[in-house]
Design a protein around this nucleic acid. Structure first.
Length: 660
RNA sequence: GCCUGUGUAGCUCAGCUGGUAGAGCAGCUCAUUCGUAAUGAGCAGGUCGUGGGUUCGAGUCCCACCGCAGGCUCCA
């Protein structure tokens, strides 16, 4: 028997019999590898294990613990889901079923307009386990377009994809099929075959560590004007431990949910009497908010911003001039009709007001850059299905500023701004950033291509200069200019869009804002929109989740609670509370009305940074007992002065919290 | 806006196939005075999201609406 030679990832060569499959190669390397293998990369292409390997090819075996391997088994699990559904609902049409982060989904259209219910998830999962137990093979076949259309003649969504691929096809379609010349399909049984690019695990028996998570609606091809399908989401892993780990992480994330913690910590609420997406901040949330805003104000003062304010409503004319009514009217609250037909709108943005402040008198180049800052509360009519806690609301406050500068100043101004933003975010305990550049949206955009190109290039240069990773978001810009956004990773690795810097060549032009240059002629300034927190409300949500409610001491609404052991220690407790308060510490006293253990427990549950206990010894020696958050080991007999120094130093340095 | 769920006391939840609401915690009162995560007793608290309907009778069944949750679409 003749042999062929393959190159392995470590560079070594191996001789295998001609006609060997990727699985044979894996087996030749080792039986454990063969057991863990789910697919292979042959000459750079991810393929089935059963695929014969050509001579002189490079072969890399993909195992279940690699990202590619997990993707293969998730995708294969999606096929098992589809088969289970077709067994239970004969005649069901299925659309697409890709692997996604941590799992997979599959979209279905059930016969007779039937819908899945939550209890169906149990039945489907049972059916899936039967299919796994049957250990059905995944058998690949390749067909011409015509054959493909015939093979899937009872599956209209599949034939639509094949037909779309025939006439070019989108990236999404090609992901299903592979390439435009060949229609590939994977058959599990005589009754079940699915259109798919592959690769797949050799057989369903390789799967099993999955769980169906939920059912949701999804529009066919993501188009809200088309058929709404039933989407089932699932998660799938290579082992029970990995699956359990994922479920545990979900559980932990749920414990951090700012909506839950916000209620428990008495920070804010959404009274239904006020309306969806409209929040009120309670005293503790109000304190947190004031601390955040005050610190931000201080930093802005230091960075040469000037403070302005503007009203919440305005005549339509302002947003006609800015272009918002033309582009985003559906995102605005409907107008109030006043004074013989005059239309007034709640403001969805602050920028036109700031431009009017700029325009209130003639400006000289000597005044630029002019940095106008406002905590501006805006209102946007979000669709009813999208409001979510504090992160997506209908009324919120932006830490909004608009910088007007000359074209020559733009580059320096952007660089300075990015440094400022990162420094401020780091002060709040966020440390892991990358940048995203959103470029010209093809449909909704004003301005010349040249202006866009120049602005995008400048933003990219400045981002690179900061040394952070830059990700491109093609077509994601606003209608009036490109933007760069700072993305921050939180304590459990989730990414949040934080700050945005938006260049705008259009608004100054629309408002005919000018400055007089050294040449004594009028010129148009550049406008930079920027918000660091984005919205104060959303920033609070992110901080609460980042810290799991354990806000750092400098941001805690109540920093210290003093507990007296007995009533006769109350006077001392109040005395040191007064001293702490005089040093700017937010402190309360919980006098001895219930047992000490109960008061400790209550304060612990409220996530207080410091619980101070004072008893006989402390009154005698002017000391305190300190029970710090995150510690199960209280310190006794610390002198009050030592504690005060430690506390004020921690607050001043924005010291990090004990447990994230 | 669309799909699927869901809504009982401030919070967490129980309430079987329809027979006129129940617990724990929190709150209040009284007693207890205690050295680091729950002292005891008592009291009070709900038109069961809202409005219709079926029924002798609805927290429970049906319809509509509202809120919330998870998705989809959207997010200047």
């Amino acid at each position: 028997m003749s042999t062929i030679s393959v190159t392995l990832p470590d560079g070594s060569q191996r001789e295998v019999p001609d006609g060997s499959s990727a699985l044979d190669v894996a087996a030749a390397i080792g039986s454990r590898l063969a057991k863990a293998a789910v697919a292979a990369v042959v000459n750079g292409e991810l393929v089935d294990l059963g695929r014969p390997v050509p001579d002189n090819s490079t072969v890399s075996v993909v195992t279940t613990t690699s990202p590619e391997g997990r993707e293969v088994l998730r995708h294969s699990t999606a096929h098992v889901l589809a088969q289970a559904v077709t067994r239970l609902w004969p005649g069901a049409h299925f659309a697409i079923g890709p692997a996604i982060t941590d799992g997979f989904y599959y979209d279905f259209d059930l016969p007779g307009g039937a819908h899945f219910s939550d209890s169906d998830m149990v039945r489907i999962e049972e059916e899936m386990r039967r299919i796994v137990a049957e250990d059905q093979p995944f058998v690949r076949s390749e067909h011409s377009i015509e054959e493909g259309l015939a093979l899937f003649s009872s599956q209209p969504y599949k034939t639509e994809i094949i037909a779309a691929v025939q006439s070019g096809g989108t990236a999404e379609d090609l992901a299903e099929v592979g390439n435009s010349a060949v229609v590939s399909a994977y058959r599990n049984t005589d009754d079940f075959v699915d259109l798919c690019r592959g690769p797949h695990v050799p057989s369903t028996g390789r799967l099993g560590y999955f769980k169906l998570m939920r059912v949701a609606g999804a529009y066919w091809r993501g188009d809200e004007k088309r058929q709404q399908l039933q989407r089932i989401y699932g998660t799938a892993w290579e082992s029970q431990e990995a699956l359990d780990g994922h479920l545990y992480r979900l559980d932990e994330a749920e414990k951090r949910d700012h909506r839950k913690l916000g209620l428990e910590m008495d920070l804010f609420s959404f009274p239904t009497e006020i309306g969806p997406g409209l929040s009120v901040f309670h005293p503790k949330g109000g304190a947190l908010r004031r601390l955040i805003e005050d610190y931000s104000r201080q930093r802005h003062v230091e960075d040469d911003y000037e403070f302005v304010t503007s009203p919440h409503i305005t005549k339509a004319e302002l947003f006609e001039t800015s272009g918002h009514l033309q582009w985003y009217a559906e995102g605005m609250y409907p107008p109030m009709i006043l004074d013989e037909g005059q239309r007034y709108y709640l403001k969805p943005m602050n920028c036109p007001f700031h431009v009017l402040i700029y325009k209130s008198r003639q400006r000289s180049y000597r005044e630029l850059p002019l940095r106008l800052f406002e905590f501006g509360t805006v209102y946007r009519y979000e669709k009813s299905g999208v409001v979510h806690g504090l992160t997506r609301v209908r009324g919120f406050t932006q830490d909004d500023a608009h910088i007007l500068c000359t074209k020559d100043q733009m580059r320096d101004e952007l660089a300075r701004l990015l440094t400022f933003i990162l420094s401020l975010l780091r002060d709040f305990g966020l440390n892991d950033f990358y940048l995203e550049l959103s470029t010209r949206p093809p449909e909704k955009a004003v301005g010349t291509l040249e202006d866009w190109a120049e602005a995008e290039a400048t933003l990219a240069d400045v981002a690179r200069a900061e040394g952070l990773d830059l990700v491109l978001d093609e077509g994601g810009g606003a209608f009036y200019g490109p933007k760069i956004s700072v993305q921050a990773k939180d304590a459990i690795g989730r990414t949040h869009q934080m700050s945005t810097i938006q260049l705008d060549f259009q608004t100054p032009q629309r408002f005919e804002a000018t400055y007089v240059g050294p040449d004594n002629a009028r010129h148009q300034p550049i406008m930079i929109h920027r918000a660091l927190f984005g919205s104060v409300e959303r920033f609070i949500a992110i901080l609460v989740e980042h810290y799991a409610g354990n806000l750092p001491t400098w941001l805690s609404p109540e920093q210290v609670r003093v507990l007296s052991v007995r009533n006769d220690h109350d006077d001392y407790a109040f005395e040191i509370a007064k001293l702490l308060k005089s040093r700017g510490i937010r402190v309360t006293v919980d006098a001895a009305t219930e047992p000490l253990g109960a008061r400790i427990r209550k304060a612990k549950l409220e996530k207080l940074p410091y619980i101070v206990v004072v008893g006989d010894d402390d009154v005698a020696a002017r000391t305190v007992g300190i029970n710090a958050r995150g510690s199960n080991d209280p310190e006794r007999g610390v002198s009050f002065e030592t504690f005060l120094e430690r506390l004020t130093a921690e607050v001043a340095s924005h010291g990090r919290p004990e447990d994230l």
